[in-house]
Design a protein around this nucleic acid. Structure first.
Lengths: 212, 212
DNA sequence: GTCTATACGCTGATAGAC
DNA sequence: GTCTATCAGCGTATAGAC
């Protein structure tokens, strides 16, 4: 009955309910502090279903991880399509990550906060996963084009993304009170122009918001 | 017999053996993947001793946390005494953190890697602990002195320390192969001078190593 | 595919001798 | 203070009906 499927509001499929519940619980309590029974209860399914779909708790975590890393990958790909220069691409990625932190807090929290290897054995460190490798490639191209100062790619990655990632963590811990998008221009200025007082920023802090 | 205590090599005291063993196991396997029995075995003490000294597994983790945060606090205090300007103090702190990452890897790993609130309930986020508050004060003073560009302190903290902290994480994950002290000058240049290509760094990457 | 009831290992913690 | 032996509860996973 495909007709009904289109007209009637469909309940969320079982596996989706499981993943949503698990994400919420994992992020708020930590993977190890959540039992399968709690996921089962919050998702309103039976334990049997969970083991059918994901094979266990670790299976849920792995499915979540893969799914959410793909979302980050899409975000990076999107920035690569929309922008041309390395600096613009980096800025766009940071902008989107900041937006996500406000609108999809659980997703960002799950990707950026936990030590995944503690519950996903033989998973490579997240900074070696495909979206982060793609980011490093963008930086490398920026160096080749003489946009970004040359040097060790990992150092440059840290210098460019370390600040924004730290802000994301501070925001998730509720230490930063303002929505991150409000702070975007300021951190981008810091990244590209540096933190020393110069002629450009000693009088006010307007700086070069549209740098790149 | 204080004389003997000074002359004969003393075996490490029990509580110290417990903490050392626990630190090693927690860092390598994650708090939740380590049982009290494993700590007991590696420390070569009985379970009873562990409960006598620390009251349980969480007690060990808390004692470790307090102890190691104090070490970081000492490091920050030391930098405040030795250096005068905010920039110099920040550089010194980062330098010492980089050194520690090579020589006391477990300590840095325990402080910088885990989500402590997952096993230490009602512990404030680490960025609100005293050494990190002290760092923010240094930054604030730097802004007041017109050394550091003015703006939100948390943004400035992220911009200055986010990169180095990211490098510490990358180093702990063995993604960065070189000892961090070898990369110190490069990241400091990036922090203070920014990542854009300018007259100062377009020809070579010598930059202003001794800035501040 | 979904569910309930059950099994069983492990872990944190205690009791009590020394 | 230190130790061994033991417990109680939880949490993962399975069996088997529907």
């Amino acid at each position: 009955m495909p007709y009904l499927k289109k007209v009637l509001p469909q309940p969320e499929p079982v596996d989706c309910r499981i993943l949503t519940a698990a994400l919420d619980l994992f992020v708020n309590n930590g993977f190890h502090n959540v039992s399968v029974h709690e996921v089962q209860k919050q998702a309103d399914v039976s334990i049997g279903s969970i083991y059918n779909h994901f094979g266990g708790k670790e299976g849920i975590a792995r499915a979540l991880y893969d799914h959410l890393l793909n979302e980050i990958q899409d975000l990076v790909d999107c920035a690569k399509e929309e922008k041309i220069t390395a600096v613009e691409r980096c800025n766009e990625i940071i902008r989107q990550l900041f937006n996500y932190t406000e609108t999809h807090q659980n997703i960002i929290s799950y990707v950026f906060q936990p030590r995944h290897n503690e519950f996903l054995p033989d998973e490579p460190p997240i900074c070696n996963s495909s979206p982060f490798v793609a980011i490093r490639e963008i930086i490398q191209q920026g160096m080749d084009n003489n946009e970004i100062r040359k040097g060790d790619v990992l150092v440059a990655f840290s210098a460019i993304y370390g600040g924004p990632i730290r802000m994301i963590n501070l925001r998730l811990d509720k230490i930063i009170k303002d929505p991150l998008p409000d702070l975007l221009d300021e951190i981008l200025d810091c990244i590209w122009q540096g933190m020393l007082v110069t002629e450009n920023n000693s009088e006010d802090n307007i700086g070069l918001h549209s740098v790149g």
